Simulated scan of single mutants.
Amino acid sequence: MANGNIQSNNPTREIVLCAQSKITNSGNSLTETTTRGPYFDAGSSKNVSALLGKTAYLNCRVKNLGNRTMSPQVSWVRHRDVHLLTVGRYTYTSDQRFRAIHQPNSEDWTLQIKYPQHRDTGVYECQISSTPHLSHFIYLTVVEPDTEIVGGPELFIDRGSTINLTCVVRNSPEPPAYIFWNHNEGIISYMSSRGGVSVSTERGETSRSVLLMQNAKPSDSGSYQCNPSNAKPANVTVHVLNGEHPEAMQHGGNQRMGPSLGALAFISYVLLAYC
């Protein structure tokens, strides 16, 4: 019976010891969490590209900052002129394009830049006012997408051949949502009675749109424009030749005729006779 009593009491004792162990471990864990200072999320971005004139957002994620009154502050500093831009949720610059964004209980501290210009390109520092202070650097690049129609600004096409125009969009932070084609300021309709019109578009770091118009006619001559959704348009002038020579067209249809070889020889003879 005694042995039975001892065996029946042991499980209770083990439960108590286990509970005490969990309390101790949880206390140690809590102490470690509260004593460890703030730190940056390792996955935070270090390079940001922004479109010229479009709002840019620089974000750093701070872990374990705490909510106490004396918690360290998060600031944004521009390295170009070592200018303090924000502290906490407050903006410390007269440039109204800059704004501090932070939601309560959020780990994200964001610097908003409205209408970024090329001069805004450079290093920005997200800084925690701990001891020693901690820094996370982000390099902002302000880019202006470049649009080009390959082979422009003028293209000469033989009548009956295929008009093949390729539009290339470079330096865009994101692919354009769409690329429209215009002919003489009117949107090209792929369902028009003309027929033979097709467009294929590839979106990526460099986006391309190819316009094909089969069986070119003189009425297809004119100005063609490529219109990306997030970049300036590009233009090209297409001439559909009806047996003309491109050189003649470039001179308004009138070729400039120089003196004949016979005339040059006569002039040379006269000059030599008087020398």
Rank of each mutant, 00 (worst) to 15 (best):
S49Q: 15
L51T: 07
L52Q: 12
K54V: 14
K54L: 04
K54W: 00
T55A: 09
T55D: 09
A56G: 01
A56V: 05
L58M: 01
L58G: 03
L58R: 02
N59I: 12
N59G: 12
C60L: 06
R61V: 14
R61M: 12
R61A: 10
N64K: 03
L65T: 05
L65Q: 05
L65A: 06
G66D: 02
N67K: 11
R68S: 15
R68W: 09
T69F: 07
M70S: 14
M70N: 13
S71N: 10
P72I: 01
Q73D: 11
V74Q: 08
V74M: 13
S75A: 07
S75M: 11
W76F: 07
V77N: 12
R78T: 11
H79K: 13
H79Q: 15
R80M: 12
R80F: 07
D81V: 07
H83M: 11
L84C: 00
L84S: 03
L84Y: 01
T86K: 06
G88N: 07
T91L: 01
Y92K: 08
Y92F: 09
T93D: 03
T93S: 06
S94M: 00
S94Y: 01
R97A: 09
R97D: 12
R97P: 10
F98R: 03
R99D: 02
R99H: 04
R99L: 08
I101S: 08
I101R: 02
I101N: 08
Q103M: 04
Q103L: 11
Q103S: 12
Q103F: 06
P104E: 04
P104W: 00
P104S: 01
N105S: 12
N105P: 00
S106F: 02
E107Y: 02
D108N: 15
D108C: 03
D108I: 05
W109K: 05
W109E: 11
W109Y: 15
L111E: 04
L111C: 11
L111V: 11
Q112R: 13
I113M: 07
K114I: 03
K114L: 07
Y115L: 05
Q117F: 06
H118F: 15
D120H: 12
D120E: 10
G122M: 00
Y124E: 09
Y124L: 09
E125A: 11
E125K: 08
E125F: 08
C126R: 06
Q127P: 02
Q127E: 10
Q127C: 07
I128E: 01
I128A: 04
I128F: 00
S129I: 04
S129V: 06
S130R: 02
S130L: 01
T131V: 14
T131H: 08
H133T: 14
H133F: 13
H133P: 15
L134N: 04
L134R: 14
H136S: 14
F137L: 14
I138F: 01
Y139E: 13
L140W: 01
T141Y: 10
